[in-house]
Nucleic acid binder design. Structure first.
Lengths: 341, 341
DNA sequence: ATAGAAATGACAGCGCTGGTCATCTGTTAG
DNA sequence: CTAACAGATGACCAGCGCTGTCATTTCTAT
């Protein structure tokens, strides 16, 4: 029933210490010994006892995922990807929803890490963009990986997975431009999230490249919420000079804008084109469905966890492909920006 | 830095055995001794080493949550509630997304439990409704709690948290009746989910009570998905005798129906009233917002976990309030069923 | 053949629980 | 007031399954 390391050792004809070495990928195990042990492990279906490992080595085989994101789809996808990687590496995932705006957030994270002796941590926005958290984690020497907005890998960002919001936003804006729109407005997300800034920058760059100076009135501050989209669109459509297209910083804002347009009897896309960002499931379920940019969150999460394991696992092969992954969300054209002819 | 049980013992002036007794809620510890120990624990901020406890006692202090639900909001809420209860009781939560339709699902669950030596398991639909899983879990003697559709507590369901879908569906249907509708259609969810059956029964009961015989053509089989709602509504609105209201088994289906109505240029709620179920965030973000029934998922999850701990913790006070919680989702009227005058 | 490196093993111990008694404290009846 | 007993506590030990340390053996290259 319960297979211990002793069983494996006698099966393989080696000492339990050697089995332990194999389990932990320690160097200096001869190839044939390694194979013998692996064969025994497979034959007996040996599964190391996590508790014993933790106790003896005073570390844990779990990584943490801290989140504070109203977007359930995003969180579920991240979890899924992280969990996939964890299963592959025999780790567990500790999830920790919390409030990013709490004044003791740094201490809370530190406590979590020390409490559970976490092997590492995956941070998504807004945590990945909070300098004190990164500093504190570095100080206590915990490995962590951040998923952040950015396009250019650099040594300083060696523990980051980059999502190139700039380029994706550029593409979406370009799509609107190609449709013939010139008066394109932008509904911002939360200022604290750098993704909002990056997307804005991509939008501006696309306009500028076409020789269009972004109209400041067309750039509306806001937050990543439906309500913000409702409000922002209303504000825009009350301008004397209205935009003919709105690029919302995410799908939720876009859905809010759609809602607002509906209230004002504005036909989408005939009178107003609307684009979102993220490709969350409901971007397909609005009427009309939203043009958006697809972020492969599950894959992003997997990569983040893999990167973490490369650093966090003591004897992993650090050398291989230590390059930083950069993801560029892909343009997805749907009816909310169809050509109006 | 690291506080061990020894520190607590000397601080409290007792033996480590007594501290252990307190930690494990063993009987025969005098009140004042207990208080002394608790004071020391608080003063030193002692946190028992989970790994050591697990190893020595050969059990774990974590419970599992298995899910396979496309509805991210539901999962997130459940997680939140379970996690709240876990934190309170010093347990951890192991999440395990999987495929309920997998042929080896029972074995997978068993493996998970034995692998991680789980203290207990929380099952939501569809797992909570799979008899083989319950049987298998009982066989290996693991505590588990099921969240299921039902209205009447009974000893056989002693480890269940009930959600009274029947009554809630009755109320929604009644609301539509009071609005003057008599031709009310019902879009079913997945047959395997008993919630769909319960909601259908509530719908039928409400009609029958008004002396209306449910029209079989108005009851459309389907699944808990947007697409199903699109298809179902289309089918209904192509009938020679069309319904004037649609009650969808959940918000997603309702959103699909809304989408379909839009395609067919049917005004909501003037030409067709639509109601959903669940109060997921996007039910507020459709146009018009959906009338629905609110399910307090976070609270439901908390209760489920509490119930589990009452059974799973060896020396917990089993006596207190062992009655089964029953939740009745609450009617939430929004514009999708406004009076059309 | 022999130094030096590489591979392997022996053994203690991680922090806690469970068990077994021995001891101590408090309570109650006589 | 004391005996007799039950309840509460402590002392002690083994051991959960693994890893860290260091000693020992085996290989490799000169």
């Amino acid at each position: 029933m319960k297979v211990t390391i002793n069983d494996v050792a006698s099966q393989a004809g080696v000492s339990i210490k050697t089995v332990s070495r194999v389990m932990n990928n320690e160097p200096s195990v001869r190839k044939d010994t390694y194979d013998k042990v692996m064969a025994a492990i497979t034959a007996l279906q040996y599964q190391p006892n996590a508790a014993a490992r933790n106790l003896a080595s005073n570390r844990s085989f779990s990584i943490g995922y801290i989140y504070d994101n109203p977007n359930a789809y995003y969180v579920i996808d991240m979890q899924r990807g992280l969990l996939d990687a964890c299963r592959k590496h025999g780790y567990e995932l500790l999830i920790h929803p919390t409030n990013a705006k709490s004044p003791d957030i740094v201490q809370e994270v530190i406590d979590l890490v020390q409490q559970s002796r976490l092997a590492g941590l995956v941070l998504t926005p807004p945590f990945s963009e909070m300098p004190h958290i990164a500093e504190a984690l570095e100080k206590i020497g915990v490995h962590f990986v951040r998923i952040i907005s950015g396009s250019t890998p650099s040594p300083k960002l060696s523990n980051c997975v980059l999502v190139d919001d700039f380029t994706a936003a550029f593409k979406i804006t370009n799509h609107l431009l190609e449709l013939g729109h010139t008066d394109i407005a932008f509904l911002c997300g939360d200022e604290e999230h750098s993704s909002s800034g990056e997307r804005l920058a991509g939008y501006q760059a696309a306009l500028t490249k076409r020789g269009i100076t972004p109209n400041p009135k067309f750039i509306v501050p806001g937050s990543y919420s439906f309500e913000s989209g409702v409000k922002g669109a209303k504000q825009l459509m009350n301008l004397s000079k209205k935009p003919s297209a709105i690029f919302a910083c995410n799908d939720e804002i876009a859905a809010g804008a759609l809602f607002s347009a509906r209230l004002m009897n504005i036909a989408i896309p005939q009178q107003l084109a609307i684009a979102g960002f993220e490709n969350s499931p409901f971007s397909r379920q609005t009427w009309p469905p939203l043009t958006t940019a697809h972020q492969p969150n599950v894959t992003i999460a997997q990569q983040a966890a893999e990167l973490l394991f490369r650093h966090a696992k003591p004897n992993a092969s650090k050398m291989l492909s230590d390059k930083q992954p950069v993801f560029i969300p892909e343009l997805l054209v749907r009816e909310s920006t169809a050509v109006s002819e």
